[in-house]
Design a binder for these strands. Sequence first.
DNA 1: TGCTAAATGAAATATTGTTGCATTTGTGAT
DNA 2: ATCACAAATGCAACAATATTTCATTTAGCA
Lengths: 147, 147
Amino acid sequence: MTQVKNTFQFEDMLKKHHLKKTAPRLRVLSMMYSKTTATSQPDLENVMHDIDRVTLYRILNIFEEKGIIHKVFDLNGTANYAVCSSGCQENHHHDEHLHFNCTRCKNVYCINDLYLPGLTLPEGFKAESFTLYANGICPKCEKKPHH
Amino acid sequence: MTQVKNTFQFEDMLKKHHLKKTAPRLRVLSMMYSKTTATSQPDLENVMHDIDRVTLYRILNIFEEKGIIHKVFDLNGTANYAVCSSGCQENHHHDEHLHFNCTRCKNVYCINDLYLPGLTLPEGFKAESFTLYANGICPKCEKKPHH
DNA sequence: TGCTAAATGAAATATTGTTGCATTTGTGAT
DNA sequence: ATCACAAATGCAACAATATTTCATTTAGCA
Ligand SMILES: [Mn+2]
Ligand SMILES: [Mn+2]
Ligand SMILES: [Zn+2]
Ligand SMILES: [Zn+2]
């Protein structure tokens, strides 16, 4: 689902959202678009030692505000971020897809190509959005021999 | 859904799970069974000032292990705990129901009486469990006037 | 009643989230 | 190309939460 993008496209993305083109932001975009799974702040820190923790924190926040990425919680409740497929606007996300948590490799996958059936809530509850989580084994882990 | 229970029943629950009957555990059970929404660790701390934070932390952990309560994450990613309806065993939960996050009062509701339709995942993904989250306004907040 | 493993409380450490502020830097206007 | 200024970064500091260690207390049982 994640489409390959080059540096020029990342620069365009930043400009479109009125964000200054900076090295940390381009590197975060590049990393997140290159992965098929969600990325946690620790993931970013482990790769980008030279970028301050707080800078990463703020980049993730502003990207989420702008509708570039969305937040997912993994099995441990730590925040992971994944690129938004499309149609997400500033402060108005449309990421109602399945999030698959692999219990073995701990990776979080966004599963966009899955039909989410309409649901009827009990009387009185007014739902604005839904998120579906699944826990299990991802294809990569399924192929590997068990520990 | 939450059934009313008395102290004797809480004592039985602890005995059944080979847990010693202690005051902190009984109070946590009592509080969690009295609520219709999930309880966070800060919630417990605010009520039970005299019980150590770490004790609460350990009680929640052992109760979850034993299948007495299950963990839900709220909108901020903080862990909330709710009593398991039934059928949950040690290290083997069956809590595949809807979790409703109210964006106004921040309460988390377990919605058990909702049919979760079967879903077919993409090739290779083996799901073991599902959790559905909904965000919106709960019945209580809907009735109250807006701030 | 006393023994013992389990549970608690207190302290200490690790991780994560968050804010304030001084400094640097990207960008649009000159 | 240079300038001015808002935006972005880095650093320090603080808050909240998660987790471990260990001495002390206590529940359950012989
Ligand atoms: Mn997603
Ligand atoms: Mn629940
Ligand atoms: Zn995996
Ligand atoms: Zn509410």
